[in-house]
Design a protein around this nucleic acid. Structure first.
Length: 264
DNA sequence: ATGGTAGCGTAGCTA
C-alpha cells in the first residue's frame, strides 16, 4: 500500500502534473492540499482516466481545499469544524482494508510569529492544539490510521536549510514545533518518513517560489508529513520525497509529493 | 533590512 501527499497549489491549473505524479509514483492513494477548487470543478475525470476512479472532495472557491484520490473505493469518515470555521482543511476516508486516512492542510500562520499581534499565527497554533485535543477521542491510537498533509511546520533541525537562521521564521519557531510535538505525543503518532530517512539527513518538501534558483540555493523546508499510529508502525516500508517535481514544467507547485509504503 | 514569486480572479488576499 503506497500513500502519497502533495500540496498542489491549484488542482485545476496543475491537473496534468497530478497525472504525471500518479504515473511516476503509482500510489494507491493520493492526498491533495490547496486544491483551490469548488467540488463541482474538480478534475475528477482526468484522474479517473489515469486509473484513479474514486475521490472524496472538500473544496471551496479560491482558497484551501483538500481531496483524496484513490484506485480503490473510499468511504467518507466524518470530520468536524476546526477553529469554528468551515474552511476545507481536513478530509478523512476509510480504505477497503479498514485503514483510515486523514488529510490536513494546517494554516500557514502569516509572517510574524506572535499570536498576540498576528491572528493568522494564533489560528495556526489553535488549529494544532485542537488536533491534539481531538485525537484521543477518535480511537485512532488503537486503529491502523495514517495522517498526511501540509502541516506547515518543519519540526526537526534538518527539516530546514538552516536551523539557526529559521528559529524566528514562521514554520520553524520553537512555539510551533512544541505545538506540533505535543500533537504528535497526544496519541503517539510515528513520523513514518523519518523512520525511513534518518533525522541526520537534510530533507525538504517545499522550496519558495521567490528564490532565483530553488535548486541552487536549496533553501527548503519539510512542511509535508506522513504519520501513522502504532498499529501500523511495524508495517513501514520505503518512503521518499519526489524532489524533481519542484522543477516540473511548465508551472511546478512549490511543494513536492511525499510518499510512504506500508506492507499489506 | 529588504524584496523576491505565485494563484485566484481581476483588487487584494493568501501563501
Amino acid at each position: 500500500m503506497r500513500i502519497a501527499t502533495w500540496n498542489i497549489n491549484s488542482v485545476r491549473l496543475r491537473q496534468d502534473l497530478v497525472v504525471r505524479a500518479l504515473g511516476e509514483l503509482a500510489p494507491d492513494v493520493l492526498c491533495l492540499q490547496e486544491t483551490k477548487s469548488p467540488n463541482d470543478a474538480f478534475p475528477a475525470r482526468a484522474f479517473a482516466a489515469a486509473g484513479y476512479g474514486h475521490a472524496l472532495l472538500a473544496g471551496m472557491k479560491g482558497y484551501n481545499g483538500v481531496a483524496i484520490v484513490s484506485r480503490q473505493p473510499l468511504t467518507a469518515v466524518p470530520t468536524r469544524d476546526w477553529c469554528e470555521r468551515q474552511d476545507c482543511r481536513h478530509i478523512a476516508a476509510a480504505l477497503p482494508n479498514g485503514w483510515i486516512v486523514h488529510n490536513f492542510y494546517v494554516p500557514s500562520g502569516g509572517d510574524i510569529p506572535d499570536p498576540e499581534t498576528n491572528p493568522k499565527f494564533r489560528h495556526k497554533l489553535d488549529f494544532v492544539a485542537e488536533m491534539a485535543d481531538w485525537w484521543p477521542a477518535t480511537g485512532a491510537a488503537g486503529h491502523p490510521t495514517i495522517m498526511v498533509g501540509d502541516l506547515n511546520i518543519a519540526p526537526l533541525e534538518n527539516d530546514v536549510w538552516s536551523h539557526r537562521q529559521m528559529l524566528d521564521v514562521v514554520s520553524h519557531t520553537p512555539v510551533e514545533v512544541e505545538a506540533l510535538t505535543a500533537m504528535q505525543s497526544s496519541i503517539g503518532w510515528v513520523d513514518a518518513v523519518r523512520r525511513v530517512i534518518p533525522a541526520e539527513d537534510k530533507l525538504y518538501s517545499w522550496w519558495s517560489y521567490r528564490a532565483r534558483d530553488w535548486e541552487a540555493s536549496d533553501r527548503g523546508r519539510r512542511l509535508d508529513h506522513i504519520w501513522v499510529t502504532e498499529p501500523l508502525a511495524n508495517r513501514i516500508g520505503g518512503a521518499g520525497i519526489l524532489r524533481q517535481a519542484r522543477g516540473w514544467e511548465p508551472k511546478p507547485s512549490d511543494h513536492v509529493p511525499v510518499w510512504l509504503d506500508l506492507t499489506d
